[in-house]
């Protein structure tokens, strides 16, 4: 399965390096290793999946 990071890199090669430098140099180095990197390692389908879950959560409840 293609990781999310690979899909981003294929689309926009400079983006992740710039983002990583910004996160590690201006916020906290660990934030990249602990939060961003695990998310980027997720399969690319997680993005539409997460959006779908979000919509499900936000959607108004069905009438009973």
């Amino acid at each position: 399965m293609t990781p999310l990071g690979a899909a981003i890199f294929a689309t926009w090669p400079e983006f992740l390096n710039t983002l990583q430098a910004g996160v590690q140099r201006r916020i906290a180095p660990e934030l990249w290793d602990w939060v961003f990197l695990p998310l980027l390692e997720w399969p690319v389908w997680v993005v539409p999946g997460a959006l779908g879950l979000l919509l499900l959560i936000l959607a108004p409840g069905r009438r009973r």
Binding site: D33, W34, P38, L53
Partner: peptide, 19 residues
Amino acid sequence: RALMAAAGAGVMLAPTAAR
């Protein structure tokens, strides 16, 4: 719905916490 969201977040963040 909040419970589902919490469960989903837990699943997503578990590997992060372990790492």
